[in-house]
Design a protein around this nucleic acid. Structure first.
Lengths: 122, 122
DNA sequence: GGTTCTTCGAGAATATATTCTCAAGCCCGA
DNA sequence: TCGGGCTTGAGAATATATTCTCGAAGAACC
């Protein structure tokens, strides 16, 4: 059964309060503000469990390493800043983008990534 | 100075004759048809050099591991088959996709990835 | 408060992709 | 043809991300 530990609460809170994909290191840094003794292994353990439970979704962007976001978020895309390497949500989606596939291909989903400089780095 | 070895010729030919992004393992397998003794280290060495020379472009798609394609190819996107894990080119691009970014963000490029089943796996 | 069983923290261990090492081989200009 | 030095092949080594190990800590339940 799932116990409600300080560490797990802090990690969940980081995801609900931060509206962008987070890497395990991001989560460690942010959650340590609540629980300074938090260890990286605990972050990985909890991310894995939250993902297995369907509460977190994986986001794989260029740059190595998986990021995670709340699975319940509505369809959206991402912007990746080449300066600070942070990912941001883009709440627009080009219509009918899945019709671009070659004939004979079955499209099940799509991902759009914009690259550049975020507002803070511009 | 760059010597024109059998191995390097075989690797370059694989890229010019295959119109989709290739992983180092793909290149090894395809180029070994011309040079059976080819080793993986040689594939990595030559890919790196061809990339440094600007002849190859990196393509990073979900699934771990970099893929490469000819840098000279015109703007296009990719389709990733979830069954065979091969990537294919998509020669269409949604217009004005870079205008979707939030205010204050500077967009320098974009990548669109379609997921599903390729023609052979459908 | 005591018991039980999950979870934690820290470092070791593992997985995977890529690069390095080095002796042997081959390209290419002389 | 010859020789220097770039290149190769194979396995060792490295880099990085993630998971495992294990003794200690701490939730949940009585």
């Amino acid at each position: 059964m799932h116990r409600d530990t300080r560490q797990r609460r802090a990690i969940r809170r980081v995801f609900t309060e931060t509206a962008r994909p987070l890497s395990p290191d991001d989560v460690l840094e942010l959650a340590q503000r609540s629980v300074p003794s938090l260890g990286l292994a605990t972050v990985y353990r909890n991310i894995r469990r939250l993902h297995d439970d369907g509460w977190l979704a994986e986001v794989e962007l260029p740059g190595g390493g998986m990021r995670y976001e709340l699975a319940a978020r509505p369809h959206h895309h991402h912007f990746l800043c080449r300066a600070c390497d942070q990912a941001f949500d883009v709440h627009n989606c080009p219509e009918s983008v899945e019709e671009l596939a070659p004939d004979g291909f079955t499209v099940e989903g799509h991902e759009l990534i914009l690259f550049g400089l975020c507002a803070a780095c511009s």
